[in-house]
Design a protein around this nucleic acid. Structure first.
Length: 108
DNA sequence: AGATTGACTGCAT
DNA sequence: CATGCAGCCAATC
């Protein structure tokens, strides 16, 4: 493993997210400190299925899933989050003030 | 090597 | 809250 410093850093942050909570792409990028939200999304897309990285705990700044409603990824992500106790409102949005991850130094 | 795109964000309108 | 524009950096063509 090695050479993918960008992906590795991002994956490490995502793995720190506690169950039942969610983090935004900007949050992960800010915690990582050296990558941009764009790269976080790109790194997520590069994560293979069955990986130990809870990519589904990463959503966009509005607290909504970044996939188009009705797509397979969208329903999968929502189902996984609900199974961990995350609540979605009628618009499929998550209350970041309740389920938003504070950071690695709070829960970890 | 240059242009295009992308699981984004923030500010302005 | 929706839409538009700019900034961001890596992967892809």
């Amino acid at each position: 493993m090695g050479a993918d410093g960008v992906h590795e850093g991002i994956r490490r942050i995502v793995r720190m997210i506690p169950a039942g909570k969610v983090a935004t792409y900007g949050q992960v990028a800010a915690i990582e400190g050296k990558c941009t939200p764009r790269m976080v999304g790109y790194a997520m897309a590069g994560i293979p299925a069955g990986s130990d990285v809870p990519w589904y705990r990463v959503i966009n700044s509005r607290g909504t899933i970044s996939f188009p409603a009705g797509s397979d990824g969208h329903e999968t992500q929502r189902a996984l989050l609900e199974s961990e106790g995350v609540e979605f409102d009628e618009r499929g949005k998550v209350d970041l003030s309740r389920f938003g991850w504070e950071g690695p130094g709070v829960e970890a």
